[in-house]
Design a protein around this nucleic acid. Structure first.
Length: 277
DNA sequence: GGACAGGAAGTCC
DNA sequence: GGACTTCCTGTC
């Protein structure tokens, strides 16, 4: 232990407003995992926290100084009940998804980590994505004080310094080259993620797509989960199927409005868990 | 048992 | 439309 860190526990919300299981398991993040006691431990921006439910109440344990960070990360200022109501007009299937996923919040994740993680996600499955991300963090991330064996997500500058082949040990396949080139673009300033996030309209999405290995889908994930533009609507194989089977031909996700991205997350989670929930 | 196809939050040429 | 890395599953 490098100095004692004062842990603070506070009640955040009710489970209807923030469900740790749904929020951590809906596929938006890769560094939150259930402990043996069912509590979720997560790492973000070099900080650690635990989330759990007691009855209807949700608690967080973290360094006291970090609580403002976690409030922002958990998007506590957004009214998700109102967001769900805005989707009421999108049909019975949409309402079923929203009811099933109530408690999902769209986390305000680090931009670089989100970009890197969703580059890794392409044509891959979630357990393997998590494994690759953890190997990346353990190899190049800063150790987090007071948490043995837990590492921050590595800075782009750290990865940019690697030579070609420097990520072979990740076993991330053809995605390794994409990670390196994204790291170099970010570290050199050629890709300014903060500036990109402020571009109006589809500007952020267009800017991200300039990176090799970032296409329509990954760019949308970064815009939604990293830039918190809640109208972004990533379309993958699951969502393609949902749109085909449950929405009329010619339906445009833009019709879902400013919370289309939240709707997408409800659909994704529903499609992946219905019948085994 | 071990080979093999199919698929996994896709993208590129 | 095929190739691309790696890994896991189901099938024969």
């Amino acid at each position: 232990m490098t100095g004692t860190v004062e842990k603070t526990t506070i009640k955040l919300f009710t489970v209807a407003e923030l469900d740790p299981v749904l929020t951590c398991e809906c596929g938006q993040c890769f560094r939150w995992n259930a402990d043996a006691d069912g509590r979720y431990s997560g790492v973000a921006s070099g900080r650690i926290a635990r989330l759990w439910t007691e009855g209807e109440d949700v608690f967080i344990e973290a360094d006291g100084d970090d609580l403002p960070f976690w409030r922002d990360y958990l998007d506590m200022e957004t009214d998700y009940a109102a967001a769900r109501r805005s989707l009421d007009g999108a049909g019975a299937y949409m309402r079923a998804c929203a009811e099933h996923g109530a408690g999902i919040r769209i986390l305000r994740q680090d931009k670089w980590e989100t970009l890197c993680s969703f580059i890794i996600s392409q044509c891959n499955n979630i357990p393997r994505i998590k494994g690759i991300v953890e190997r990346l963090c353990a190899a190049f991330g800063a150790p987090i004080p007071g948490a043995d064996g837990v590492y921050a997500f590595p800075a782009a500058e750290r990865l940019a310094a690697l030579g070609d082949g420097g990520l072979d040990f990740l076993r991330s396949g053809y995605r390794a080259g994409y990670i390196l080139s994204a790291a170099r673009a970010v570290a050199s300033g050629k890709m300014d993620l903060e500036a990109a996030a402020r571009l109006p309209g589809d500007g952020a999405w267009e800017a991200l797509k300039a990176l090799p290995g970032v296409g329509d889908k990954v760019a949308n994930c970064v815009v939604l989960f990293g830039f918190h533009q809640m109208d972004a609507f990533p379309v993958d194989v699951w969502i393609r199927r949902v749109l085909r089977e449950h929405f009329p031909p010619g339906f445009s996700p833009a019709q879902l409005g400013e919370y289309a991205g939240l709707a997408q997350q409800y659909m994704f989670y529903y499609a992946r868990t219905e019948g085994r929930a």
